[in-house]
């Protein structure tokens, strides 16, 4: 529902800006009406999150703590800025981000025969993946200088995320059940499509009337509402601070 709503807004904005192009304009403005952006960005922020939960087993409370870390990586972005006036425009862009991260777990299982004698297992998980597609729809303020253009933008974002997490830890324990050993683990991919916001700016060095090189920084944010089966909600954010650069093509 949220996805279709935002896509409708994007479509309306593009349609509105397209109709705005039909209005008479000076030649300079007309050339700058549409700018296509292609960026390569870097996400320097770790995916650091913890998935903790408690459960009842053998009349006692057990505990599960999974900690995840890593996830720096490269973001690819394409989009377009459509100028509505000389200083105001709308920008639609899509960021594609995929990174690998690792985790570790510690599980405490109540003893089947005794109170307060939990068995603990721990281990590491490697090769988890976080995939994020962010659709940003921004209002853009543009200020052109002799050979530079400065854009400042902000607006809502829709994130499409897939996050791998450790789902189950299977253990074996034999009489007298004082110890447990991990026999296998399984991962799950949790989807969520939260709506958030983004804000940032770009400095473009116009090499010609058509092409320019841009430096861009953007902060985007949304909070995921994901939980594995039997687990509590995981506190994890989408987006983050991303810097990089790319090219601008003006039409």
């Amino acid at each position: 529902m949220r996805t279709s709503t935002l896509l409708s807004i994007v479509a309306l904005a593009v349609a509105a800006s397209a109709s705005a192009q039909e209005a008479p304009a000076s030649g300079e403005e007309r050339e700058r009406r549409i700018r296509v952006l292609v960026n390569g960005l870097y996400n320097p922020t770790d995916i650091g999150f913890t998935d903790s939960s408690t459960f009842t087993s053998f009349l006692e409370e057990g505990r599960s703590t999974r900690t995840y870390d890593g996830g720096k990586g490269v973001v690819f972005e394409v989009g377009a800025i459509v100028g509505i006036t000389k200083v105001l425009g709308v920008m639609g862009s899509v960021e594609l981000y995929q990174s690998e991260f690792d985790g570790s777990f510690e599980e405490s299982y109540p003893h089947p025969l005794y109170f307060e004698k939990p068995r603990t297992v721990a281990g590491d998980i490697a090769g988890l993946e976080y995939k994020e597609t962010a659709v940003h729809l921004d209002a853009v303020l543009t200020r052109a200088f002799s050979s530079f253009t400065v854009d400042v933008f902000a607006g809502p974002s829709l994130f499409f995320t897939k996050t791998d997490v450790l789902n189950t830890v299977t253990t074996a324990s034999e009489y007298p059940f004082d110890e447990a050993t991990v026999t296998s683990t399984s991962n799950a991919t949790l989807d969520d499509n939260p709506i958030g916001f983004n804000a940032g700016g770009a400095l473009t060095w116009r090499l010609s009337e058509v092409i320019g090189i841009a430096f861009q920084a953007r902060y985007s944010h949304a909070t995921l509402g994901i939980a594995r089966e039997g687990g509590d909600e995981i506190d994890l954010d989408a987006g983050g601070f991303r810097v990089g650069g790319g090219i601008r093509l003006s039409f």
């Binding site: 003893h111 089947p112 005794y114 109170f115």
Partner: peptide
């Protein structure tokens, strides 16, 4: 007997 709780298998 002494009101202590134990696990019963």
């Amino acid at each position: 007997t002494w009101s202590d709780e134990k696990k019963m298998s």
